[in-house]
Structure formats: structure tokens, C-alpha cells
Amino acid sequence: MPVGARAAAMGNASVTFPGLWALQNNVAGIGKAENPMAGVYTENRFGMSAFTTVCFLGIYPVTDVGTFGLSMSRFGDELFSRQSLGLGFGHQIGQFSLGAKADLWQVSAHGLGSKKAFSFSVGVQAEVIPDLFFGAYAYNLTQAKVATFQDERLPTIMKAGLAYRPYQKLLLSAETEKDINYPADLKAGIEYKPVEKFALRTGFSAQTSTTTFGAGFLARFLQVDYALGTTTLLGLSHHLSISYTHN
């Protein structure tokens, strides 16, 4: 479940991105953090309240040890909902950043009760050469089971990608994502900064035929990002994230 409006605006081609939202998108990216950060993210898909996600994330770097992270999320309504509580850790070793994350999930359905499941994920990021970045992430390696009926499990997803910064104002990213039960998806995004503290973004996801647009700005220690996604048959999705960096 990728989070952050910056990632959403770039087609969720975010496996190479460091920072706060990496706690959910590729936990290795929190290993590069130099300051504590916290943020909230919300998205609504297709104008339906049942398809609303709300997340809180926080990371705290400890000198010479690494960065610790806490995430909480909720999706759904009173008929069906999915909550998670996660703990992550990232560590920078030279040009590589490594990370691991554990999540406790609760899935609830009206009239059917609730089930809990535990998932474990790992990731890596690296600057291969100056301004060329690589990222890979394996989500739910444990193939956590939600119910014995039809062997229902949380999705197990592998993704890998590259990002390239041809010059300071422009970032290009692309990745492939494979749910073990579905065909692979190709995602790509572009970020352009006409000025240092303001960014324009766009991206797409081939498998879902989703096109996204967005913008973000930095006001001292506060980062605000917004994204709009359009899927041909289903309608619009809105994404908003606000984060704070403590110096």
C-alpha cells in the first residue's frame, strides 16, 4: 500500500525515494534520514468514502545506529476495513541503504468478524553512480494468511526500479511491480522543480491505466503535497500528504 502524495503523483514509481514515506514504500529509504520526521497521508478513490485511506508515519534517526520508524494506517468503513501497525528500521552503509519492516494487520468484515496477520518486508536502495539511483523492495515475504477459506492471504509484492536526475531540477523514475498472483505492472513518473521549493509531477501505471498529476511545496519545515489520479472507467482519486521535519 504505497503512501505519500509525491509518490502518488509520479505513478507510485517510488521504490528509489528516501525519506519519511519510504517507511511504507521501501523501508530502506528511511536509513538516509538525518532528522526526525512525522507526517499524515490521506487518499480517497473514486469519490467513495469506503475507499478512503488514512495513515500516520514517524521516523527517528539514532546516530551510528540507524533510523527507526512507526506507521499506522486504516482503510475502509464499517462494512469492511483494514488496519495496520508497523515498525521499521533502516541503516546506511556506504552507498547502500538497507531496511526491514514488520506489520501487524487486522482485516474486519461486517458480520464475519476480524482476522489478524503478520507481514515482514525488506528493501535496499543505492546510488549506483552520481545521480542514478536503484531501489528494490519485497513486501510480505511471510505470505501472511488472513483466512483458511480459499487460502486467503495478504498480497506478496516484489518491485524494483531506477531514478535518474539529469540535472538538478528534473527527476525521472521508473519501476516494475509484481504481485505474485497478477501480471507485472510498469510505472513511471517525472518531477520538475521550476524553483527550489516547488515541484510539479506526473506519472502513470500501465496495468491500471492510471494517469496522475500533482504538485508540492516546502514551507520551512513543512512539506505539503497533493496528487490527482484518473482511471478511465472508475473516476478520480485524490491524495494529500503533510509532513514535518524537526531540525
Rank of each mutant, 00 (worst) to 15 (best):
V146Y: 09
V146G: 06
V146H: 04
V146D: 01
V146K: 01
A147R: 13
A147Y: 03
A147W: 08
T148C: 02
F149P: 07
F149N: 07
Q150I: 08
Q150M: 13
Q150V: 06
D151E: 10
D151S: 14
D151Q: 15
D151C: 15
E152W: 07
L154K: 03
L154H: 03
L154E: 04
L154D: 08
L154Q: 04
L154F: 08
P155L: 11
P155K: 05
T156F: 09
T156Y: 03
T156S: 12
I157Q: 00
M158W: 07
M158P: 00
M158A: 08
K159P: 01
A160P: 05
A160M: 06
A160N: 02
A160H: 03
A160S: 03
G161Q: 01
G161V: 05
G161N: 07
G161K: 00
L162G: 00
A163L: 05
A163Y: 00
Y164P: 02
Y164M: 12
R165H: 14
R165S: 08
P166G: 06
P166H: 09
P166R: 02
P166Y: 12
Y167Q: 13
Y167M: 13
Q168D: 15
Q168F: 11
Q168G: 15
Q168L: 13
Q168N: 15
Q168C: 09
Q168A: 14
K169R: 11
K169E: 14
L170H: 11
L171Y: 01
L171E: 08
L171I: 06
L172R: 04
S173T: 12
S173Y: 00
A174Y: 00
A174P: 03
A174N: 04
E175A: 02
E175C: 11
E175V: 05
T176K: 05
T176D: 00
T176V: 13
E177S: 10
E177A: 07
E177L: 03
E177C: 01
